[in-house]
Design a protein around this nucleic acid. Structure first.
Lengths: 165, 165
DNA sequence: GCTGAAAATTATGCATT
DNA sequence: AATGCATAATTTTCAGC
């Protein structure tokens, strides 16, 4: 193992759980909740945020803005135009997810739309007009039940001071 | 249109942008940034959070915890056991995403793992052991470039007081 | 729904261990 | 790295518009 082991402990975990419910929750509250020192809690929050282990952010609910139609789209992208195509796609507000696939030509995206007409327009006109991009398939997504924002590591990824190496 | 139009304006949008970078940024800072009243900024934040339009949360970076292997998995689920199967899957920490597909039997998930062995175990042993679940396919995901946490509505989803209906 | 002012709470900077 | 303390800044409460 060349990677450094997770330098996170039980307190970090509890702070994480608290911030996940409300990122603006005062460190003092979390200190009371956990019994830890208020100053320590703030140090931990700063450390986790600055290291990039967590991101304290605002997630917008697409439904609240009327984006009720979700579709997963599978693309084949000309390798020579891949970077330009991806840059192009990343500029599109409709795209909520973009990932590279195993093959060099595979790219999958997710789009959200206010109505079916917008979605069809995107699939039939917008995407085909992006140089190097071919739509190989798509599938409507009626309901997303879990997404990355609710993900957590295993509890024992937070060291109990006894599982080093 | 039966749904209420987005009751958000330019100020909400700017607040959103600020909170997206740092959910703990003080309302006073945002007030200075936008020229809006400090108290108004807090009211807006509270309103957007309470209405569910935004969620102020902590997103954990799987990479920081060693979860470097991502795989998209397509499942066929026996309709009679669907709810139990989904509940079962939702209890699994490895699953970062779970969505229902168009067909009544289709479910797609994304899993993250620390190594390929864990991933293979999940695909070959864990999933097949869930009653009513059959793996119909999977695809490794080498790199996710955009995810839902960075999504934003269109700028003109924030009313300029002139686009009502 | 927006804003103001005092009181309560919280965060920051610095120093100590 | 954790913590205590003084100071600065912020949030809250209650109010009026």
């Amino acid at each position: 193992m060349a990677r450094t082991p997770a330098p996170f402990d039980e307190l970090d975990y509890q702070i994480l759980l608290a911030l996940r419910e409300n990122a603006r929750q005062p460190a003092a509250d979390i200190a009371r909740l956990t019994g830890a020192n208020e100053r320590t809690v703030r140090n931990r929050i700063d450390r986790m945020a600055e290291s990039g282990a967590i991101r304290l952010t605002s997630i917008v609910d697409p439904h609240a803005f009327g984006y009720v139609n979700t579709v997963d789209i599978f693309l084949e992208v000309d390798p020579e135009q891949e970077q330009a195509a991806i840059d192009n796609l990343l500029n599109r507000q409709e795209i909520t997810y973009l990932a590279l696939g195993q093959g060099t030509k595979e790219v999958s995206i997710e789009g959200r739309f206010k109505d079916i007409a917008e979605m069809r327009e995107f699939l039939g006109r917008v995407l085909p007009a992006v140089p190097g991009v071919h739509v190989t398939g798509y599938a409507l997504v009626p309901r997303i039940i879990r997404n990355i924002d609710s993900w957590l590591p295993k509890a024992d990824d937070f060291a109990h001071l006894d599982n080093e190496n």
